[in-house]
């Protein structure tokens, strides 16, 4: 016999058959894994790529998303508006106003580049997935629909334990720490001054 093979144990004849029966019986007693989808909504993981939602207040019509999109499925129209000067006597500012923002989901391949590339956090993944249509043209969803999906975007998931903290929080914390340090230093200085005053009085007495 091949010494490399594990020694085959003879065992009781039929024990393998019995084992097979036991496996199926045990599985029958267990809970089933069937997803009863239309009756019960699935529990989707937090970063599910269902559909793309648009938070248009953040959009500056920079067109980065439309340009980065590998299959050109984002349509953006806009016009310029002139905003009156903020302070009297100042210069007028021009601003981009979004007219149309549409994503053709018959072309979209859910790569998520548009979301990654958006510098102003205007695009988000939503886990919503029930937007099938009977006509392929209707899969081009306009901004109102994209905005509706925005409200289905879940809170960002908690960070991993021991992860680096988010930049916003880090910046805010640093600012707060600096302020606290400054306050502490001022306080210490004041106290020191007060202490010095006291000592001077004692010496005089």
């Amino acid at each position: 016999m091949d010494p490399l093979l594990p020694p085959s144990r003879p065992g009781i004849p039929g024990s393998g058959l019995a084992k097979g029966l036991a496996v199926t019986l045990r599985t029958m007693m267990k809970k089933t894994v069937t997803a009863q989808y239309p009756d019960v909504q699935p529990e989707l993981p937090p970063r599910t790529r269902g559909v793309i939602g648009l938070f248009e207040e953040n959009c500056t019509v920079c067109m980065l998303c439309a340009r980065e999109c590998p299959d050109w499925c984002i349509y953006i129209d806009s016009h310029k508006e002139t905003v009156p000067p903020a302070a009297p006597g100042g210069r007028e500012r021009s601003r981009n106003v979004l007219d149309r923002f549409a994503i053709d989901f018959s072309l979209c391949m859910y790569c998520g580049i548009c979301i990654e590339v958006c510098p102003f956090d205007a695009l988000f993944w939503s886990p919503e997935f029930e937007y099938a249509e009977t006509d392929i043209h209707e899969l081009t969803h306009e901004r109102d629909k994209l905005r509706e999906w925005m409200w289905t975007v879940p809170e960002p998931p908690a960070l991993d334990p021991k992860a680096e903290e988010p930049k916003e929080i880090a910046a805010a914390r640093k600012a707060a720490e600096k302020a606290a340090e400054k306050a502490a230093a001022e306080k210490a200085a004041a106290e020191a001054a007060a202490q010095a005053g006291l000592e001077a009085q004692e010496e005089q007495q």
């Binding site: 199926t24 019986l25 599985t27 029958m28 267990k30 089933t32 894994v33 069937t34 009863q36």
Partner: peptide, 13 residues
């Protein structure tokens, strides 16, 4: 039904 549950499924519902 039995076959479904032995395979972790529900069968016809």
């Amino acid at each position: 039904k039995v076959m479904a549950h032995m395979q972790g499924r529900l069968g016809p519902m």
